[in-house]
Nucleic acid binder design. Structure first.
Lengths: 192, 192
DNA sequence: GGCACTCCTTGATGCAAATCAACCTGAGAG
DNA sequence: CTCTCAGGTTGATTTGCATCAAGGAGTGCC
């Protein structure tokens, strides 16, 4: 049993489930993300692959030895965990206080931002992003139902905030407009 | 400017605020909890004392030197941060999927558990806990309005799940009943 | 072709929690 | 003693989202 894994390619989701089946996604694992905890074997959450996935699993013992031996590793891991904690806390604001429309706009802008960070290319035309999640997965992430997700996406489309190309592809003519709809303050954090 | 602080006594809350004033509490700082991040100066959240508070502030430089010098410190800090992350994720389930009644029951049971962990004494009679928060602060924590908090507390009282002694003091005749109302699976995590 | 399936959209209806509003209680302050 | 003000309760009404329900579009299989 390895206690720590590292996503190499693909997307996985971290979800919590209640006895009666209500589900909440609590994290999205993208390439380069770590899962698991050094020093604990039982996982508190379900980890589900949402696409084909390649992960790199570390053996418990050697990994812990490395942690002790090289302080930089522990420090780097700490920093990554603190980033995740910040992201989780931003998400708590979304779950607790945002409207359905704001939630959708937030999700799209987060995906857009992550995409931009990944590709690092300045595009002049409208931003273009792929949604790596089904409507149901988005609903689980946002604390909504899939019907509400679908309706709010349609509404944002009708209002010209986004354009759809097929079900999974979104064009963003005006990113500031989208951020405004997301209710984030201008400079806005919200990295995942 | 110190980057890291440690609560010695009292209670502080970590909150996020939107431009229009909507607020979400994203963490409760109790004695022994750490705030802040090594390596970053700007805080992403408001930290507000909800009671008189004594904190221990570390100077940035010496703290970071200590981090590098003693791997145990970094590891311990990592572990604490991972615990906080777990707690944040449990909280996301609450915010995204639980009903108002379940949220209140969850909050009370969390406070009860923490209390029990602190005092370590087996009591035979009904559990007795003090709520360290006003109704409004509970509302900010749970993603509700203060009126709903008040109503649900009254409802739980009427249904015999809890008993009130004054506004801030709660008796729990049957902790399992309360946990059931909280919607947590029996053995249940939910530490804060 | 027809069938089964997943994913998605849209409409009608219901309900839980927000909102708006009034009032209660206790603690200082003058 | 009265005034004020923060914290709390409770009631009436509204509303945003969930729920229930039907149907469309794409894909793979026989």
């Amino acid at each position: 049993m390895s206690s720590v894994r590292n996503v190499l390619s693909g997307i996985a989701s971290l979800t919590q489930t209640m006895e009666d089946g209500r589900r909440q996604m609590v994290g999205l694992l993208l390439p380069s993300d770590f899962v698991g905890r050094p020093g604990r074997s039982a996982a508190a959450f379900d980890v589900t692959a949402t696409t084909d996935l390649v992960m790199c699993c570390f053996r418990k013992k050697p990994f812990e030895e490395m942690m002790s031996a090289t302080p930089h590793v522990a420090q780097r891991l700490l920093e990554m965990t603190l980033d995740e904690l910040d992201a989780a806390r931003e998400w708590m604001l979304l779950l607790g206080r945002k409207t359905a429309r704001e939630k959708i706009a937030s999700l799209i802008s987060i995906i857009a931002r992550r995409d931009a960070a990944l590709h690092l290319r300045k595009r002049t035309g409208p931003l273009s992003v792929d949604l790596p999640l089904t409507r149901e997965e988005m609903a689980d992430y946002l604390g909504l139902t899939l019907e509400t997700v679908s309706r709010q996406i349609s509404a944002l489309k009708k209002d010209g905030v986004i354009t759809l190309e097929g079900n999974r592809h979104v064009l963003i003519p005006d990113i500031d407009r989208l951020l405004e709809e997301a209710g984030d303050d201008s400079d806005g954090g919200m990295l995942v």
